[in-house]
Nucleic acid binder design. Structure first.
Lengths: 226, 226
DNA sequence: CGATTTCTTGAAGCGGTTCAAAGTTGGTGG
DNA sequence: CCACCAACTTTGAACCGCTTCAAGAAATCG
């Protein structure tokens, strides 16, 4: 039907008029229509089972997306960082809990706003589909970590992955979450996480500056020989 | 824009004219436009990294969706059964391998066909988004199994889950996959899978008719006490 | 029927958990 | 500025569940 020019990256055009302008990317939509908000450390941004009244894009800080089992165990599915989206407009209720690991700033949209954009702009619909699939692939990678890597390599895989997204200051990467958080993400106890940090340091795979800042050192490969 | 009546379930209207008719559900789209095909046991339906030229809906049989790591280990993400969709139109290449566990029949569409439907029918777009999110939630449940349940409960959780979808003949559920397949799905060795079947039988949680047919027996709860 | 694959069972070894205690960090108030 | 407290991290030792290796039983197929 109406052919639409979809540019992948959009330069930050200084919009002042909100009404007529066509918004053709998800990023733009949040920039133009999103409402800023912020959360303190350990605040709950969204609760599992609660109705979805806002969908978020994180601006700064780290959010843990997790689920609590009936026996009180916690599984952290992902740590979401700046630029990441949280929530799908098509769902009625949250399927996970989102909590601020440290201070977090974000922007939110009403699901209806995003829904309307999906109807009128196929580019946005496609971008959202791809986003969903991307998350999907992340979960599958995570599954592979849990079933095929043992603790030390699991932690290393995470650190490599996290380094990609996280802002590295002076080439050290900030790790705002606790050992318990990491354990609940990687399916191991906090003690094992701590021990693995020790092993990785001794092995020379990582360097650390305090307990919460790390830097990868070269291509160290796996502890387990092929 | 054009408001469209979207009925969740569509009665099997006997269409003979393919051209003008509007197709408003994914099911209908596969029924009307899909091409039937079939695969023998252990045939590869799709290979990871290969371009996506067809998206499938399974009609009969079970398909394992998996990925092979560089060290030759296999992770089975899911066993797809009748009615399940395999492949996303938005991706260029397959992000997993799909193989027939036993004989499989399916229907396929060209991604372009589905893409076109997504553009013209918002109902279909929404249905596909929900499908994707559903798969997503499945992976997250799987993650919880892997990190918080031990082998016996993990197998039981799978058997409960699989029983939901699988066709039960005389209330026994057919389990066409091998112990190795189950192990690669549940993150344990084939020996452990076998041993867990033994434990579950002894516990009275399941009944078996041969090695590949099972039946759940009541609410047995978990082996691990709360 | 023999040949191959799949399943079951056993015994030893190892990785991660559990429980326990000490060390470290960061924030608060005297 | 230092003392104190709470939260977090590190380290140690015993224990347990799963893996590994190995052998035998059962099912499947030409």
């Amino acid at each position: 039907m109406h052919p639409t020019t979809c540019t992948g990256t959009t330069a930050a055009v200084p919009f002042k008029v909100l009404s007529i302008v066509r918004v053709t990317t998800v990023e733009e939509l949040f920039d133009v229509r999103g409402t800023p908000c912020s959360f303190a450390r350990n605040n709950t941004i969204a609760s599992e089972e609660a109705p979805i009244e806002r969908v978020y894009r994180i601006e700064s800080g780290i959010v843990r997306c997790c689920s609590y089992t009936e026996d009180g165990l916690r599984q952290i599915f992902a740590f979401a960082g700046p630029g990441d989206l949280i929530g799908f407009p098509d769902l009625d209720v949250w399927h996970f809990t989102a909590e601020a690991v440290g201070p977090v700033t974000a922007r939110f949209l009403k699901p209806e706003t995003l829904d309307a954009a999906l109807l009128s702009e196929h580019c946005i619909a496609k971008a959202l589909r791809r986003h969903c699939i991307g998350q999907f692939e992340r979960r599958e990678r995570h599954l592979i970590w849990l079933s095929h890597l043992q603790s030390e390599d699991r932690l290393l895989a995470f650190l490599e992955d996290f380094g990609e997204v996280a802002t590295s200051e002076g080439s050290f990467v900030n790790l705002p979450m606790t050992r318990q958080d990491l354990g609940d993400h990687l399916g191991m106890t906090l003690e094992t996480v701590s021990r693995c940090f020790g092993c990785l340091k001794r092995r020379g795979a990582i360097e650390m500056d305090g307990a919460n800042r790390y830097r990868l050192r070269g291509q160290q490969g796996r502890a387990t020989a092929a």
